[in-house]
């Protein structure tokens, strides 16, 4: 079991969370060229090592978080809220 320190709820089992995907992707503007959208939707770096990824605490606070995790050892290096502004509004550590 991976243990994820949720910035809102504290450390919980990963089975409380749903895995999102690659957190390094930023979607282009709606009028961006097709190639940019193709790359954002279909292309992945697929890092063997530390990557940033999104998880959602579905069986907890339901917040989306950004997790820096090693894809070989599963060690977690950092966790932060995906929406910094919302975390601030809720008064949680960001």
């Amino acid at each position: 079991m991976i243990r994820i320190p949720c910035p809102f709820c504290g450390t919980r089992d990963h089975s409380e969370f749903a895995y999102g995907g690659d957190g390094s992707i930023t979607y282009p503007s709606l009028d961006a060229p097709m190639q940019d959208w193709h790359d954002a939707v279909f292309q992945r770096e697929n890092i063997c090592g530390v990557q940033v990824e999104t998880w959602q605490h579905v069986n907890g606070c339901r917040m989306w978080i950004l997790v820096e995790r090693d894809t070989m050892t599963h060690e977690i290096h950092s966790v932060r809220p995906a929406h910094a502004g919302m975390a601030k509004a809720l008064g949680a550590a960001s």
Partner: peptide, 9 residues
């Protein structure tokens, strides 16, 4: 979740 580890959870 994405993983290169050959070990299950």
């Amino acid at each position: 979740y994405k993983s290169y580890a050959q070990k299950g959870n």
